[in-house]
Design a binder for these strands. Structure first.
Lengths: 185, 185
DNA sequence: CAATAGTTTCAGAGAATTCTGAAGGTTCAC
DNA sequence: GTGAACCTTCAGAATTCTCTGAAACTATTG
């Protein structure tokens, strides 16, 4: 039965993506849910998602909320339909940018602030070779946080252009791969 | 007392870095431990770490093992000393590369394999517009995983050069910062 | 406005992760 | 070899995270 195989493939892929996502600090379930939506290729109602992944309505709802917060899933309203639909963001680049932005915004401020505070504390302490070296190192760490943030940001924001050398694979790779089938080689 | 302030600053910074690290999918404790070693600026015995962070010997040992596995902490043997010392890797770039490499190695194979398997499953299923579209999407996902990996890898490996515009801040900034103290200009 | 379909929220259950503390190694000095 | 100092391991404790299921809420329909 075709539906079973579709379903099995879906779960397999969802789990794989779930694992990636988990290694980047997200919940596995979020990756799985996004993948199901992505493979579906069209907006799905919450209930359908719950059925495919065997999740409770509550879990689906919470996950969808979080995915929307990250900008990787969008809510779709369909005239005439009572229920709501959800679709996966498919522009991988936009997705990643958003996630990075969010992480930056969330952390950079507080982290930077705290590191600066730590430096301040030390500089008020009586000078000593030990403290001096600690200040140097903290400053170095602080500098790195800033540089890394800038660099990552630049990378993320510039890549859309640079990626063209991959033949638009990132944004619209469908055509290029369409003809490759198992056993081709 | 200077030691108290050093200690307080240490904890503050350690916690900040711990938070960053946590958002990138690691245990907070690993970030904290690394930071203490980094600020110390010299190899420390396990016991000293435990005291500064109030961790049990077991936790310290386990954390050190993991940090070494990630290549961000090194074991140092000092002739004449019975205990062993641990020092933080200070080349941020090497650190990041290693971490990315590890993640890649760990996941890329399995993830790629599973996605390919999912595509294979679908391609054996009876053709239908729905299945065809699913195959397309899965292929696109697969392509992205590969591209992203390549791109990230390239970025990571090339950045060492590009970072020079930050005045070597990333690799060897110690000297540059050593003399700079608050009020220098 | 009552009934219904659908979604969100949240307390508590259950699962997973992380830490502790003790037992067991290992190394080195004597 | 024995004892001391130190590190590692690991079973179970403690903590944290995630999910469930039911109740509350919202929007739509008749």
């Amino acid at each position: 039965m075709s539906t079973d195989q579709l379903h099995e493939a879906e779960l397999l892929a969802a789990d794989a993506i779930g694992d990636i996502i988990e290694h980047w600090g997200f919940r596995k379930g979020l990756g799985r849910l996004w993948t199901v939506l992505f493979i579906a290729g069209e907006p799905l109602p919450a209930q359908a998602i719950g059925e495919r992944l065997t999740m409770s309505a509550g879990a689906v709802s919470m996950s969808l909320t979080e995915l929307q917060r990250w900008g990787v899933v969008h809510r779709v309203w369909r005239p005439g339909e009572r229920k709501e639909f959800f679709e996966a963001e498919t522009d991988f680049w936009r997705m990643i940018s958003k996630v990075f932005d969010e992480r930056e915004r969330l952390l950079a401020g507080s982290v930077r602030g705290r590191l600066e505070k730590a430096v301040g504390l030390l500089q008020k302490a009586p000078q000593s070779p030990e403290v001096d070296r600690a200040v140097d190192r903290l400053n170095r760490l602080l500098a790195f946080v800033v540089v890394a943030q800038t660099a990552l940001d630049g990378f993320i924001k510039s890549r859309q252009v640079d990626f063209t050398r991959f033949g638009d694979l990132v944004r619209f790779p469908l055509r290029a791969l369409q003809s490759r089938r198992k056993g081709d080689q």
